[in-house]
Design a protein around this nucleic acid. Structure first.
Lengths: 217, 217
DNA sequence: TAGATTGTTAATCGATTAACAATC
DNA sequence: TAGATTGTTAATCGATTAACAATC
């Protein structure tokens, strides 16, 4: 197995580069130097060059980087040249909102949304109809699913995630308040979105600022 | 101004400690050692002790940490002892889903939801009625708002965020695909939730795994 | 060619882990 | 008291920044 030499910090920055390059492209900018980009993105030019050179030399001395080309290359690295099929587990407000979210723009297509509540069966969500959890195994079996989005409470998530793995799911975007620790095969990929914890970080910083301001006065 | 000596990496872990301690408390666990907690959380015991000792000595040699006490102290550090009022900008699916999200559990109360679309005016969302953006200044003025959640597209966000700052907002939870770079006062706090970029990270890792698997076969 | 800017090596900085004396 | 486990210092590791030779 090829060892993965790229650090998480670098990978986390790739989508951000991709986004800025997209904006530049839209603005009709043809080329950009690491120095210019660093100013826009509020990072060091050094970091940009280091990050990119993990994957190859995409620039040219004396010229900089071709915006379109660099964006395409980062897209390839991120796997955005292929489309990804997703299912959403949970047809509550969050699940439905995510089904309507414009992920298609980047090739992430939601092709199924599931719930356990019979009341929601067949409910129309975007261009889909809510299916029951019992239908999951056969659906997964007959479609190629890359990602399952868990839009359910943590109790359901700890139950559903292993079940989905048994049925072949290899990657999750998890909105529930659990890390799914120790209940999934080690090769399964999980991306957590802990909304409450994001608010807590905000709260911490607000609290900090308040204390600082008090010191000043 | 008291300089903030706590690193972002540490702060990011605090809500997670808080969550695990809450689970332990619910499970009736009275005390826990850094070693025990480290196993559950998949971090080193050293890191836990280092992290906590940034804020004070909450443990006791030979005993460990009292779960209830430690959780309370982390709650204080995170500012969860006070309630926070929030407004949601954007009454689309995401905005409405967030209005119904159980943030109240941690003292984050949504007291207003706004949109620019007259069609949505007065629409019922949870226990609220959608207000128009024009009403924002007077609403902010007559209520104490800690956080504004931006559940709008990036074009609207780059317009609304500075406007909200002018009207006294000091912290944002930003769901739009922009960093709001350079358009806000430096003391304003922003927490970004870039959902598309989370999917891209997933995609990167899926891509990586696929390549690795190919090497093996 | 001269100027600009990359790719890359070396230096610095910060975060994580290890170790252990203090102490409950 | 002896055993356990913290708080904290020291060592290691990794990530970021600086510097500069290569080169377009």
């Amino acid at each position: 197995m090829k060892k993965n030499g790229i650090s998480k910090s670098v990978v986390k920055r790739l989508p951000r580069y991709y986004r800025y390059l997209g904006e530049l492209l839209n603005a009709g900018v043809e080329r950009i130097s690491s120095g210019e980009l660093s100013k826009r993105m509020n990072v060091t030019a050094s970091q940009i060059r280091q990050d990119l050179n993990n994957f190859g030399g995409f620039g040219q001395q004396g010229y900089g980087y071709n915006v379109r080309y660099l964006r395409e290359e980062i897209g390839k690295i991120l796997g955005l040249t292929e489309t990804h099929n997703m299912i959403i587990i949970g047809a509550g407000r969050i699940g439905r909102a995510l089904a309507n979210y414009p992920f298609d723009k980047y090739g992430f297509h939601t092709i199924g949304i599931f719930d356990r509540d019979p009341e929601l069966k067949d409910m129309e969500v975007k261009d889909l109809h809510v299916m029951m959890n019992e239908e999951l195994p056969s659906f997964i079996n007959s479609h190629h699913i890359d990602i399952a989005i868990l839009a359910i409470p943590k109790e359901s998530a700890t139950e559903m995630a292993p079940f989905l793995c048994e049925n072949g799911i290899k990657a999750f975007m998890n909105f529930s308040a659990t890390d799914l620790n120790g209940i999934l095969p080690k090769d399964v990929i999980v991306e957590h979105v802990h909304l409450s914890e994001s608010l807590m970080k905000l709260s911490y910083n607000l609290n900090l600022k308040k204390t600082d301001d008090d010191d000043v006065s």
